[in-house]
Design a protein around this nucleic acid. Structure first.
Lengths: 213, 213
DNA sequence: CAGTGCTGATGACATTTGTCATCGGAGTAA
DNA sequence: TTACTCCGATGACAAATGTCATCAGCACTG
C-alpha cells in the first residue's frame, strides 16, 4: 500500500533525474528532495541534450524537466525519452505555463505538469504519483488549456508567424521561407484575422501567450 | 576577521529576506540557506509589495530580491527599501540578466547582482559579502553591461517604445500617450534609427534585449 | 467522383507606416 | 545671449503592409 508513496523504508527509492539550467534551483531542489527518503536524485543536467545523455547513463524512473532550457526544451527532451527509454516517466516544471505547452507536453507522453509556484513537498508527492503511474496537471493550467482550445492556425501560418516574431519585414520573411512576398502577406493576414489581431506583430504576441508559437 | 564571513558561531546571524514568486525556488533556497549557521531567513515574500511589507515588519539585514516579480520588480523594491530602510542592503537574483537591468539596479543602490546559475554556496558567500558592506556583480553580466553602454533613447522614445511593445497600431499608441499620431511616428522612427532597427517592432526587441525597455 | 481545405501565387487597392523637412516652445549649459 | 537638445506638431512623399478577389495544384475524405 505504498501507492501514493509516503516514505517507504524498505522498498527501493525512486530514481530521479533533475534538469534545469538554473543551477541555484537545481541544486536547491536536489537538496530538498534528498530529505525524502523514498526519492533519490541520481542525475542532474543543465541543458536539453545533457538531460538526454544523463538519462541514458543513469536510467532514472522519473525525469523532472524544466520547460525552458538551452539546447532543447523540456517537451522535446520528453519526446526523445519516450522513444529511447519508454520506462522513464517524464514530468515538466515551468515558470510560466502556457496552455499550448501543456497540450504539447501531454501529447508527448508527459505525466506531470506543474508550475514553479508549488512547494517542494507538493513536488515530492507529485513525483511519487507520477512514478506510480499516475498523472498530475496543475488545476489552474488545466482550466486555461481547456478554455483556450486548440490553435486555429495552419502549419504555414504558424511557421510564418515564427519567422515574423523578431519584427522582420515581409521581404526578409519571404526570403527565409522561400516564398513570394505576396503569399507571405496573405498567410500573415489570415493568421492575424484568426487571432483577432490588428496586425502580424500583435498576432505574434497573442500566439505566444497561448503557447501556439 | 569575519569580514568575508565564514560561519561565525557566537556573533548574531545575518537576517535575510527572500523574495521570489516561484514558491519552489524560494522554499528550496530558504532550506539551503538554513544550513548556513551565520544566516537566518527571517521572512519570505512572493511579490514586490509583499516583499516591502515583510521588510518593514522584519527589518532584515539583507534583502535577496528576484528581478521578475508580480506587483513590483526587484529594482523597484530595492529603490523603495533604500529610502525606507537605509540600513537594509539589497541584492538582485535573476534568471536572464540584461545589461540595462544591472545598471538600473546599481543606481538603485543594489549591492549584489547574480544570475540564477550560481550555486547556493556561492549565493551564501555573496550574501555575507553584501552584508559586510561589499559589492558583488556577476563578471559576465558586468562585462555585458560595460560593452553595451547606456541607452541612446530619450524618455519619450522609451515610453513610446513601451506602448508599442504589444504590437498596437500607431493610432492606439497616440491615443494612449495623448499625442498626435504624426508625433508618435516621428519618435518611433527616431528610436528605430538609433537602434538600427528595420521598424519599431524590431526596435522593441532590441531595446528589450538590452534591458532598456 | 465531388467537395473541402491547405498551399502558393498574382494583381489591385486602401491603409498604415517610415522618412524627411520644417516649425515653435521650453529648458539648460557655455 | 547663443547654442543645444528635447518635446510636440504638421505636411508631404515613398515604402511597407493589410485586405480582398481570384486562380491552380494537391491531398484527403465522404
Amino acid at each position: 500500500m505504498n501507492a501514493q508513496g509516503q516514505p517507504a523504508g524498505d522498498t527501493a527509492p525512486v530514481r530521479v533525474l533533475l534538469a534545469d539550467d538554473e543551477h541555484l534551483i537545481r541544486g536547491a531542489l536536489a537538496a530538498l528532495l534528498s530529505f525524502e527518503e523514498d526519492l533519490r536524485v541520481v542525475a542532474e543536467a543543465a541543458s536539453g541534450p545533457e538531460a538526454l545523455a544523463m538519462a541514458r547513463a543513469h536510467r532514472p524512473h522519473v525525469a523532472v524537466l524544466d520547460l525552458e532550457m538551452p539546447g532543447a526544451d523540456g517537451v522535446t527532451v520528453a519526446t526523445s525519452l519516450r522513444s529511447e527509454l519508454p520506462d522513464c516517466r517524464t514530468m515538466i516544471v515551468t515558470g510560466h505555463g502556457r496552455p499550448g505547452h501543456l497540450k504539447r507536453a501531454l501529447s508527448a507522453g508527459v505525466r506531470g505538469f506543474v508550475p514553479k509556484t508549488v512547494s517542494a513537498q507538493r513536488l515530492a508527492e507529485i513525483i511519487r504519483t507520477v512514478h506510480a503511474g499516475g498523472r498530475y496537471v496543475d488545476p489552474e493550467l488545466a482550466a486555461d488549456a481547456i478554455s483556450a482550445g486548440d490553435s486555429p492556425l495552419t502549419a504555414r501560418e504558424t511557421q510564418l508567424l515564427e519567422l515574423a516574431a523578431n519584427g522582420a519585414p515581409i521581404a526578409e520573411i519571404a526570403e527565409r521561407a522561400a516564398l513570394s512576398p505576396g503569399t507571405v502577406r496573405n498567410y500573415l493576414s489570415s493568421a492575424a484575422a484568426k487571432l483577432s489581431a490588428e496586425n502580424r506583430h500583435a498576432a505574434v504576441r497573442i500566439a505566444r501567450s497561448q503557447g501556439w508559437l
